[in-house]
Amino acid sequence: MAQEKSMAVSEFLSNAELLKQGAEARVYRTKFLGKPTILKERFPKRYRHPVLDEKLTHRRTVQEVRSILRCRKAGISTPVVYFVDYTTHCIFLEEIVGSLTVRDHIASAQQPGSCADAELEQLAKRIGQILAKMHDEDVIHGDLTTSNMLLRRRPENKESDLVLIDFGLSYNSALPEDKGVDLYVLEKAFLSTHPNTESLFEKLLKSYAASSKRSAAVIKKLDEVRLRGRKRSMVG
C-alpha cells in the first residue's frame, strides 16, 4: 500500500519543475488542485546515518508545518500549507507568485546608480517589526537569511508584503537566548551576503527592539553571543 502511494508521489515529482536543491530539500514548482504550488521534498540524505536522517527529516517536516500555522495565526505572512505527505516528507505550499527574495532586492538596490537607501531602510524596519512579532509568538525561525524572506508585490497595495519562508529549522521557545541566536544567525548571513550593510542591519535591529515587548533581554543575549564569537580562542 505504502509503496503504491510513494509511487504516486515520485511519479508526480518526475513531472514537476525542479527549481533548486537546497541543503534541506528539493524544491519544485507545480500545480496542485489547480493552484500554483511549491513542493518541498525532503529526500533522504545519504551522507548521514539513516536513523539520524529519518529523525531530522521527520522533525523538520513537522516543525515547518507547525510554525507556518503559528505565524499565520499571528498575522505573519507565510505560504499556505495545502497538503503534507509525512511518509515521503513532502510539503505542498502556496507559491508566492510574482515574488522576489529580499536578497535579490537588496542586491539590485545596491547597484551603483540606484539611490534606494531610504527604501532599503524602510524594508529593514519592516523586517525588524515582523521578526519581533514572530519572536513574541515564541517562534524561532532557525535559518533567517535574506533568501528566506520574500517580497510579494500586490497590485492593490503600494507596499509589498514580506513573506517568511523555510521554517524547517524552526522551533518554539520563549528563551531570550534562542531569540538572540536567531538574530545572530541573521546578522551573519546578512552581512556576509550583503557587504557594507552594517548600518542597514543596525536599523533592522533598532526596529526589532522598538517593536517587541521583550526585546531588551533578547538584544542583551545577542550581544553576549557576538562576544562569545569574538572571544573564542581559535587555537589550532
Binding site: 508545518v65 507556518i68 500555522l69 499565520r72 505573519i76 505572512s77 507565510t78 500549507v81
Partner: peptide, 15 residues
C-alpha cells in the same frame, strides 16, 4: 490581514 479566509481554513486542515 495576511491571507484569505480560504487560506486560513485550508492551512488548518492540512496541518
Amino acid at each position: 490581514k495576511c491571507g484569505t479566509l480560504l487560506d486560513a481554513v485550508v492551512c488548518r486542515m492540512a496541518s
